[in-house]
Amino acid sequence: MELLLQTLLNGLLMAGVYALVATGLALSLGVVGIVNFAHGEFLMLGAFLSYLLFAFRGLDPLFALGLAFLAAFLVGALTYWGLIRPVLKAPELNQMLLTFGLSILLQNLALLLFGADTRVVAPPYQAATLALGPFFLGAVPLGAFLLSLALLLSLQLFLTRSRLGLAVRAVAQNRLAPGLLGIEAEGVYLLAFGLAAALAGVAGVMLSVMLYASPSVGFLFTLKSFAIVALAGLGNLKGVVPAALVLALAEALVSTYLPGGGGLVEAVFFLVLFLALVGRAWRGA
């Protein structure tokens, strides 16, 4: 029982970061309608920013959080303005190839600048742990979870309460209507794409503390985020958190209870996803 609860806790904490990365992806997909293969590179940006500030300025990654949010927002907005906007009306496959090219470019630029080495930061609280009775909670994963939650909640508030947020949602629901309502769709796209990148940038800082910074740090999380977004229903922002939860819990349970489960985590993750997609298609049709 204790083990089960601990396992569920582990899964829950992981789900927070997954949801943060996936929400960004869902934003660009749901609002702008772009499948962004370069999402992981925004995450990498955050991770490297955190590393560089730590290594050369001695700054705690906590400071990097805000900076990464801004920097990634800026890069995201620039990406939208320079690259995405010209292909908004192009076929979906063209957009995908464009973001794929961007992903290759950014990743290899990072390789040129920093090399493929794995880099780590060392804030004093890195391994700090809260012991609640028999349960252990890593302070950083818990913090990352809470911050993810807070960010997602404020995003939710922004989308439902503010005028600008309502405009974003309007665009997400119908790409024709906003024009009729006098909303500048382009500005909304820019905002949504920037926000998506900013969320990834923040997640990157978190990962630099929990894991490492390297040009390839974004890959695995982006792959899983695609899975989460698909499970949630493409572009469906509300479904992202439950979907992240389902997949993270499945992972934690498998790797705790199945002998040799650590090697099967990926397979189970994708099997769950596969079955869910297929099941929904058959029910829905």
């Binding site: 690259l83 292909v87 192009a90 063209n94 957009q95 190839l97 464009l98 794929f100 090219g101 961007l102 992903s103 290759i104 470019l105 950014l106 990743q107 290899n108 630029l109 390789l111 040129l112």
Partner: peptide, 12 residues
Amino acid sequence: LVVYGALLILAI
């Protein structure tokens, strides 16, 4: 690969 990526973008 930086050049390769840039070429893909330019192509699109």
